[in-house]
Design a binder for these strands. Structure first.
Length: 426
RNA sequence: GGAGGGUUGGCUGAGUGGUUGAAAGCGGCGGUCUUGAAAACCGUUGACGGGGCGACCCGUCCGGGGGUUCGAAUCCCUCACCCUCCGCCA
């Protein structure tokens, strides 16, 4: 969330940002927020004056009683004040709750380098790498390649659970394992600390990273009020909720492999064929906590780390700079990496790398100061970033399609051979 | 699932409903001493919000939330978490 004082002092800047992000509903929330905040602040002044009166006289009553004087009259008088205080407190609580609620509906501001745009069509391709693979035969989409030998069994998943829960078998399952090790090894080299995190989070965590209230419908909710994580970003980022970090120890760089669960309500058509979009998938995620002045360098570095994985795998890709309107609620700047899918003749998003700036950190109450929580100086904001490195199913799809042979086998990319122990799947 | 005990400042740990925002110790910071450091000694040391040009003043905060009271860290309710014992279990 944005800092309330910043919103109060820069309402026009926030209005511009909301328009750029194409979130007209938030404009209404903003106007209500400004009004409610003003009302709350006025009430607070009134309330605090009465509290001061009550405190002073309560102290006097205590002194009088100690001296054995009669305090009845003053107590009766204060009884009335207590009633007023109580009434103002109630009103104040409901106003404050409303302010918090509205504050959660205000999106993050786009960074100045983000182009204005209304939809995904306005995203900017800022880089292309590699040459799309060419074939002497008609390349198959991955679901045909994988289905032939049962490497990926979508029907089995339907029987066991439902659509969008793929089952991987034999070489397909081994490829999942190889990718996990490949990705995590690369991130270890890049200085990331590996984490294994809970797959369910509570509502506080989901709110702090921005899934609630904005994307509630995209998460599976289980009993006890928990949510299945849509990305391990949620669990990892909340590791430092309500903490003051040692600014000397920044940046903190975390890597986490996990299953991810997404309802993907409203998706249909070619987007959901095969492994293009599923409800449960594996992903290795990068998360960083940095000082504000370093976060944009970190964004570039994280993006390069993800790109280098695709380059090492020999997969053609492009980098998109997301426009203001396609960026999402919490992001200040975001790149998408899309890999070329020769069997489908289209680009598939395999990674999304974002700088959230202080937007999550404000909800998380994560700050930094030299020496950490007991250190000296004022706590300063931190910035959080996250990015996929990489999402498995579409990476797998691209590998299967890029390295397929006419006989229906799949050559193993050089970089994965140590992990798979063979040159050819088939 | 059942029974009991806990949750206090950066940490340890006191706290009879009325100068307790909170003893004491540790740690941190400043100083004395020392060639320097340590030790010892002295002093100092919470956060957030609001008001004032300012010295300052006010409010809130003792796990979260509610309540009782003129007044709550202290009493009541509720939730979360931790510990011990019993039960169950991969």
């Amino acid at each position: 969330m944005l800092d309330l004082r910043f919103i109060r002092e820069n309402p026009d800047e926030v209005r511009r940002a909301i328009r750029a992000k194409q979130l007209p509903d938030a404009l209404e929330s903003l106007e209500q927020l400004l009004l409610t905040d003003e009302e709350y602040r006025l009430l607070r002044r009134d309330l605090e004056a009465k509290q001061a009166l009550r405190n002073a006289n309560s102290k006097r009553i205590g002194e009088m009683k100690r001296r054995g004087e009669d305090a009845e009259a003053l107590m009766r008088e204060m009884s009335e004040v207590a009633g007023e205080v109580k009434h103002l407190e109630e009103r104040g609580r409901s106003l404050e709750a409303r302010v918090q609620e509205l504050l959660l509906e205000i999106p993050n501001l786009p960074h100045e380098s983000v182009p204005y745009g209304e939809s995904e069509h306005d995203n900017v391709v800022v880089k292309e790498w590699g040459t799309p693979a060419t074939f002497a035969f008609e390349p198959s989409p991955h679901w045909e390649i994988a289905a032939r030998a049962g490497w990926v069994d979508l029907e089995a998943g339907v029987k066991i659970t439902g659509a969008g829960f793929p089952l991987f078998r034999g070489p397909g399952a081994r490829l999942v394992r190889a990718l996990e090790r490949f990705f995590l090894d690369r991130l270890e080299t890049a200085g990331y600390t590996e984490l294994v995190v809970p797959l369910m989070v509570n509502a506080d965590s989901a709110t702090a990273t921005g899934q609630l209230p904005d994307k509630e419908g995209q998460m599976y909710q289980v009993s006890d009020g928990y949510y299945l994580i849509p990305t391990s970003e949620v669990a990892v980022t909340n590791l430092h909720r309500d903490e003051i970090l040692d600014s000397e120890a920044l940046p903190l760089k975390y890597a986490s492999f996990s299953a991810c669960f997404r309802r993907e309500a409203g998706s249909y058509g070619k987007d959901v064929r095969g492994l293009n979009r599923v409800h449960q998938f594996d992903k290795v995620e990068m998360v960083q906590f940095t000082l504000p002045e370093h976060s944009y360098d970190a964004l570039e570095a994280m993006t390069r780390t993800a790109e280098e994985m695709l380059e090492t795998l020999g997969l053609a890709y492009r980098r998109l700079l997301m426009c203001s309107g396609d960026m999402g609620f919490t992001q200040a700047k975001k790149y998408d990496l899309e890999v070329w899918s020769p069997g489908q003749g289209r680009w598939l998003e395999v990674s999304s790398i974002s700088n959230i700036e202080a937007f999550q950190a404000a909800r998380l109450k994560t700050r930094a100061r030299p020496g950490g929580v007991g250190g000296k100086g004022r706590p300063t904001p931190v910035h959080t970033l996250n990015g996929s490195a990489l999402a498995f199913p579409r990476t797998m799809a691209a590998i299967l399609e890029t390295y397929q042979t006419e006989e229906g086998n799949v050559r193993v990319p050089e970089a994965l051979r140590p992990y798979l122990g063979r040159d050819l799947l088939g």
